[in-house]
Write a protein that binds this DNA or RNA. Structure first.
Lengths: 252, 252
DNA sequence: TAGATTGTTAATCGATTAACAATC
DNA sequence: TAGATTGTTAATCGATTAACAATC
């Protein structure tokens, strides 16, 4: 994606605050629009996307405390980040701040939520009601992200029919009609390793567009399906390796 | 860490296979040793460390199948990585391969285990026996990494004394003597957010050197304590964001 | 030998950091 | 106004990719 030349065309123009018409004194012929986002030039890196939820979490706490504004500097301090990182991250969401004052918290929350697609409820199914699946079904934190597990499935007849954290466990055969009827896009895969590939294929056939893969298996799926692997071993490896050589930086 | 000049001093010398004496025809005066690792020049990046467990997992499967050698190319293919990435990663562990043949699997496993500090059992305590804590106590996969949760702790009197996946839940007061007696270095933090900081401080006072932090709280601890944060929101953010724009690359 | 593979250097790409003008 | 903060460009740093000699 070669956007270098294009991105520099509007060199030092600063758009006005979001609800007003952009500054007329912009130095280029670049088609200005109301939303900074509409320029669509900045690209969100993976690291940036991963930081967004932590901003969101803190912003909600501040909002609950009745604060109206927050500066990027404050956000940075709490998270032990460089202020310029926060400024760049927030710029990507399209949020616009005010010098000396910072960002209005409600607008900033909305901007991040829209950026992540967390502005509307996301329904998901969970397949594999073992230890981990059960824990995820009981995890309250998903609520904050507009994420809701609406169905639980397992191949074990002993588990089918049982209620786990408010969901009745269904058979894998019931997965396809359930997903289609509910227009569910996301699936969490928490089956034992050997069953992972096969189960993921069923999920895709049902119409699942994104799989959150909690197994150690590398899935082979059509490219159009987005998969995200969650692997505890990665974190443990980093921890072990850092513990082994020298405990110096602390990035909890 | 400026090692650029130094690292290039031994330009194109290739050490011989590990059990033999290094090639006498090395082109520089660099002090050759039996172990490539002893040069200590290459630096392990975070991305590299995170990939190690997946190599290890696959190597164990291959070993169980009775295979003796594996090429970096094969490892790369399975994990959808570029072969050169695998070669560089393996080089960092000090493993030495043979052209046309690849790496001997037992030696490679040992090299990676030593690199990660997974060659000996690591004992850990878990504090916070909620949904997630319970799931982690029941997770069988840690065994493969030489990782063993030897104690479970909770502040809730209703939980104390109960047995969860083979461990009797103890009070927080019992944590300090338990950790000191067992010389335990690692702790898993799975308490509710508001209790995280306080609990972590108790763990540090007990002598814990590394904390695997499963809470959403950014911990403020002495620099000598290594912390590793495990945050589901990060993965969900990446998945949501990718799902929102365009489902193209699949990196399960 | 021929060709697959290792191990290394140089080039590219992406993310972070430094520096600074614009702004309120 | 003075000074903190925003938003941007340029420089640096780290990781990936390309290219290739050495090797079995």
């Amino acid at each position: 994606m070669k956007t270098t030349a294009a991105s520099k065309s509007s060199s030092r123009a600063r758009p006005a605050a979001p609800p007003t018409i952009p500054a007329a004194g912009a130095k280029t012929a670049f088609p200005e629009t109301l939303l900074r986002q509409a320029e669509g030039v900045r690209k969100a890196g993976l690291a940036c996307v991963k930081r967004m939820p932590s901003y969101l979490q803190l912003l909600r706490v501040l909002q609950a405390e009745g604060r109206e504004h927050v500066s990027g500097t404050v956000l940075a301090g709490v998270h032990h980040l460089e202020p310029v990182i926060v400024r760049k991250d927030l710029a990507i969401t399209g949020a616009v701040g005010t010098p000396r004052i910072g960002f209005r918290i409600p607008e900033l929350i909305t901007a991040i939520e829209q950026f992540l697609g967390w502005d509307h409820q996301t329904k998901a199914v969970l397949v594999g009601v073992g230890n981990l699946g059960t824990a995820l079904l009981g995890y309250q934190g998903f609520h904050d992200y507009g994420f809701r597990i609406v169905g639980a499935f397992d191949s074990d007849p002993n588990k089918v029919g049982k209620w786990v954290h408010g969901r009745k466990v269904q058979t894998i055969a019931q997965l396809i009609p359930f997903v289609r009827r509910g227009e569910i896009l996301l699936g969490m895969l928490t089956v034992p390793g050997p069953a992972a590939q096969e189960t993921a294929e069923v999920m895709v056939r049902a119409g699942i567009k994104g799989i959150w893969n909690f197994t150690a298996t590398k899935l082979q799926l059509p490219k159009k399906v987005v998969t995200q692997k969650e692997d505890l071993a990665e974190g443990l490896a980093v921890l072990s390796h850092r513990l082994q050589k020298r405990p110096q930086d602390a990035s909890s």
